[in-house]
């Protein structure tokens, strides 16, 4: 018995010693909604270059973005996060509207178009993803290939299409943007069409892309970073940038956004990290990497494998308006997609 107790004690002690690190003199705390596999190498490189230790909270796919945003809200009285690296702009703007993020001045921000950053210097956009339709080419003939998100409501595809839970992540943002661009009644009608047409609601955009790749869905609404992985894996899929025609609403482009949390414990290190992430090198890395993000600044010479910014017809959406209308859109989704 004493041997067991001794082993227990040693295991605990060694574990504690091995697991605990002393608090480093300089650190920065990041909450990031960008998938860990894409963000972690970049943050590690920053830590290596600057000697500033980066402590990160990564997001969960099932409550993407919103979970982290609400965590920042819950900690508002005593913030623990320095930098919020969001993978979309709408919820960052909502945090700004709630005065939960603060102004900062990273030098690299000047290299980005004015439309991709906050005029008051509270958030900065970079490296975008697009909301696309991933089509299984074995299941969909070239002539029948969908070209618009409205095709999700087309009875031809009843029960054979999918999208992520529209309560979280870029899908929730997409819904808010549809509300902002189409107006509330048209957006509601469109989404009601999705629901009535049996669009399958799945766990996340990655799952949606995988289901298309495996042939479980004919096509699905997802993000370019998830879609491109299915292309790279050699599955019979094709990426369609929806609504790119002249009279259509355009493809939704969602830049990553960076913001310094108000009252954060390490504002200087936080600003330094934001500046690093806004550099052309990071944009190029994100473009060349597996997530194939689309660079927004002119200095980034690398084009994304999925598309060049110049070739796209972006949806003309006012993200600030989408942020204002987000609660209405979320309430609609909760009532319609979560209703008993």
């Amino acid at each position: 018995m004493r041997v067991v107790a001794a082993i227990m004690g040693v295991v605990m002690l060694v574990s504690l010693l091995g697991g605990c690190n002393r608090k480093p003199p300089d650190e920065v705390i990041v909450y990031t909604a960008l998938d860990r596999q894409f963000s972690e190498p970049i943050l590690e490189r920053f830590a290596k270059q600057t000697g500033i230790q980066v402590r990160t909270v990564y997001d969960s796919e099932s409550t993407k973005t919103i979970g982290l945003v609400n965590r920042i809200r819950a900690e508002a009285q005593r913030p623990r996060c320095d930098v919020f690296w969001n993978n979309e702009p709408v919820n960052t703007i909502r945090l700004k509207d709630e005065r939960l993020i603060q102004r900062c001045e990273p030098a690299e921000a000047a290299n980005y178009p004015a439309a991709d950053r906050d005029p008051e210097g509270c958030w900065f956009g970079f490296a975008a993803r697009a909301r696309v339709l991933l089509v299984n080419t074995d299941m969909v003939k070239p002539d029948d290939c969908p070209t618009s998100v409205r095709d999700l409501a087309d009875p031809r595809w009843q029960g054979r299409t999918g999208m992520a839970k529209p309560l979280f992540g870029s899908t929730a943002t997409h819904v808010a943007c549809l509300f902002a661009v189409l107006g509330e009644s048209e957006a509601r009608a469109l989404l009601d069409g999705f629901r009535l047409n049996g669009v399958q609601i799945v766990g996340g955009n990655k799952t949606c892309a995988e289901m298309v790749g495996r042939g479980q869905l004919a096509f699905g609404l997802t993000d370019t970073d998830d879609a491109i992985e299915e292309v790279d894996a050699g599955h019979p899929v094709k990426v369609v940038f929806p609504d790119a025609g002249d009279r259509q609403m355009g493809t939704l482009l969602l830049p990553n956004t960076l913001a310094l949390v108000k009252g954060c414990p390490h504002p200087e290190a936080g600003t330094q990290l934001i500046n690093y992430l806004l550099s052309a090198a990071v944009e190029q890395e994100l473009a060349a990497g597996p997530s194939a993000q689309i660079p927004l600044q002119g200095a980034a010479t690398q084009s994304s494998r999925v598309a060049k910014l110049a070739d796209l017809r972006p949806m003309p959406v006012d993200f600030a308006h989408a942020a204002q209308i987000f609660p209405t859109a979320a309430k609609y989704v909760e009532e319609k997609f979560l209703a008993p």
Partner: peptide, 12 residues
């Protein structure tokens, strides 16, 4: 790191 952290915290 995760394994050490989990072992230590579970023991604690």
């Amino acid at each position: 790191h995760e394994l050490w952290t989990t072992t230590a915290l579970a023991a604690l």
